[in-house]
Every structure is written in structure tokens, then in C-alpha cells.
């Protein structure tokens, strides 16, 4: 186990190194890059590289020309919104996906199962930005049920924290719904498949024959055993949802890091784009890493390795 963990950690360190280096070398290699006009009076590349690394350690990501502020500051103030959006939708689609997946498997072939299956497969085919635009038109404009843009109404005094939180949730609803619906399919199908194979097992059949309650069986026996393959892929799915925020935030003008990405692309603000890139890359790596550790804790076979 020890060597396994060490190999993995070394792997992550290498990837972090690659990502950081990519961030350094891209602007210096690419024809469309902002530095293409630079003359030879700049210091040698190695020297620049070391300076860059040292700056990075100090949280210096350069200056965002379009926001007229240090990239680090811009990222920090946007980050909480992305965390809120990703966090809430991830919590929802993981719990809901597992729940509905289990229900679907239990009711295999029945109307509920087929309905859910079709719904989630079709929803998963929607690009998040397209679904988001439809939601703005229908729920935001036609029905006027939800705010169309932004994260909160700052100029209204709710006098209590509760009112403020309600306002934030009101703004969060459509973006989070978009992200949830476009991400839920994978976890739903995974649970369904995994459950189906478990439900086939003898001990479940026995339990069913014994006449134990449906939910009891699902919770105590089936879900427990179906969980392992789900966790291995949670990281993958979370990665999808994290990058999904780039598109969702763009459509809803939700003030997170994802919106910064499209803003930076439109304004050709490369330092900001690179900063946002580091954020997304590290966020996904962190999720992957956590999922790896959890998997090891759960799976006895991995421990024996």
C-alpha cells in the first residue's frame, strides 16, 4: 500500500508541475500569444521560469489587464460563488442521482425506470449553456419566476440574514438546476447499473424472498455493495461539473471563476485566463485525489496491495 500511495502522490506532483509549466510555456510558444511581439532584450527563458515559479509560490499570478487588478485578487473574490454553485449542485446531483438510480434499478423495466432513464439520457445530451439559455427564456423571462442574471440583489435590505440567504438561493436556483440536470445522468446510470448487478446476487434474492421491506433491502444490502464503483467515478463526474460551471456562469452572468474564463477570452486577458485555468485544474486534481483516498479507505482489496 505504501509504495502505491507514494507512486500516486509522485504522479500528482508531476502533473501539478506539468500544469504549471504549461502555464508558463504556452504564452511563449503560441503564435496568438500576448508575448509574440517581445524582443530579444528579455532575460533568458530559464531565468524567467525561475522568477515565475517564485512568484507563483507567493501567490503572484500577474496582473489582469481587463479587471485592472492582480489576478489573485480577482480569483479570490469570484471563487466563493463558484464553490457555492458547484458545491450545491454536486451535493444535489450525487444524492439525487444515487437515490433515483437505486429506485430505477429496483423498478427495472417498469414505467418509473423507463421514464427516468429516457429523461436523464436526453438531459445528458444537452450542452449546459444551451439548457441554461432555454431556462432563462422560459423560467426567467416568460414565467418570470427566477432572476435571470447575477448572484444576489445587493440593493434591497432584507434586514435579516435569512432574507439575504433566500435571495442568494433564488439567484442560485437556475444555474444550479442547469448544472445538476446536465451532470446527474452519469451518476444515475452508474448507480442503476451497479445496483442491477447487485440485485441479481443471491443474498438479495433471499432477502426479497424473506419479505423484508424494499427500502431496508436497498439501504442495508444493495446500495452498500453498489457504492464502491460509484465512488471511483465520482471524481470524474465532479470534474465534469466543475468545468460545466464555465458555461453555466457565462450564460447566467453568475460572478464566479467560470465567468472570468469567458470574460478573459473575450478580452484576450491572458494572465486572468491562466489564473482561472490554474484554479480549475487544481480543483479537479483535488477532487480526484480525495476520491482516490476515499476509495482506498473503502476498498479492502486496495489495502492489501
Amino acid at each position: 500500500m505504501q509504495t502505491n500511495v507514494i507512486t500516486k502522490i509522485v504522479g500528482y506532483i508531476i502533473i501539478i508541475f506539468i500544469i504549471i509549466s504549461l502555464n508558463f510555456f504556452l504564452p511563449r510558444m503560441m503564435p496568438a500569444g500576448p508575448l509574440s511581439g517581445l524582443t530579444s532584450s528579455t532575460p533568458p527563458v530559464l531565468e524567467q521560469y525561475i522568477t515565475y515559479m517564485v512568484d507563483l509560490m507567493h501567490g503572484d499570478l500577474g496582473w489582469s489587464s481587463s479587471k485592472n487588478a492582480p489576478v489573485w485578487d480577482v480569483l479570490i473574490r469570484s471563487m466563493k460563488w463558484t464553490l457555492l454553485l458547484v458545491g450545491s449542485s454536486t451535493a444535489i446531483y450525487i444524492s439525487l442521482g444515487i437515490l433515483l438510480g437505486a429506485v430505477s434499478a429496483w423498478k427495472k423495466g417498469k414505467k418509473t425506470d423507463v421514464g427516468l432513464l429516457v429523461l436523464f439520457i436526453v438531459l445528458a445530451a444537452f450542452p449546459p449553456f444551451f439548457l441554461g439559455m432555454l431556462f432563462i427564456i422560459y423560467f426567467g423571462w416568460r414565467l418570470d419566476l427566477f432572476p435571470r442574471f447575477g448572484a444576489q440583489t445587493l440593493y434591497i435590505d432584507y434586514s435579516t440574514a435569512f432574507g439575504t440567504i433566500l435571495d442568494i438561493l433564488h439567484h442560485l436556483f437556475l444555474p444550479a438546476l442547469t448544472l445538476t440536470l446536465t451532470s446527474i445522468g452519469v451518476i444515475y446510470l452508474l448507480t442503476r447499473n451497479s445496483m442491477l448487478s447487485v440485485l441479481d446476487q443471491e443474498y438479495i434474492q433471499t432477502a426479497r424472498a424473506k419479505g423484508l421491506g424494499e427500502w431496508y433491502i436497498i439501504r442495508r444490502h444493495a446500495l452498500k455493495n453498489a457504492m464502491l464503483p460509484i465512488i471511483t467515478l465520482v471524481a470524474l463526474i465532479a470534474g465534469l461539473a466543475i468545468t460545466g460551471t464555465i458555461f453555466v456562469e457565462t450564460v447566467f452572468a453568475y460572478p464566479g471563476v467560470g465567468l472570468l474564463v469567458s470574460d478573459a477570452i473575450a478580452a484576450h486577458d491572458y494572465p486572468l485566463l491562466q489564473g482561472a485555468f490554474l484554479f480549475f485544474a487544481f480543483a479537479i486534481l483535488a477532487v480526484n485525489f480525495t476520491a482516490d483516498r476515499v476509495y482506498e479507505l473503502l476498498d479492502p482489496r486496495v489495502k492489501e496491495d
Binding site: 506539468i18 500544469i19 502555464n23 470534474g239 485555468f277 485544474a281 486534481l285
Partner: peptide
Amino acid sequence: IPKLPVIII
């Protein structure tokens, strides 16, 4: 490697 961010950048 986080694919989509790398592809975007």
C-alpha cells in the same frame, strides 16, 4: 490531467 481546462487554455 484535467482535460477540459487544459484544452481550453
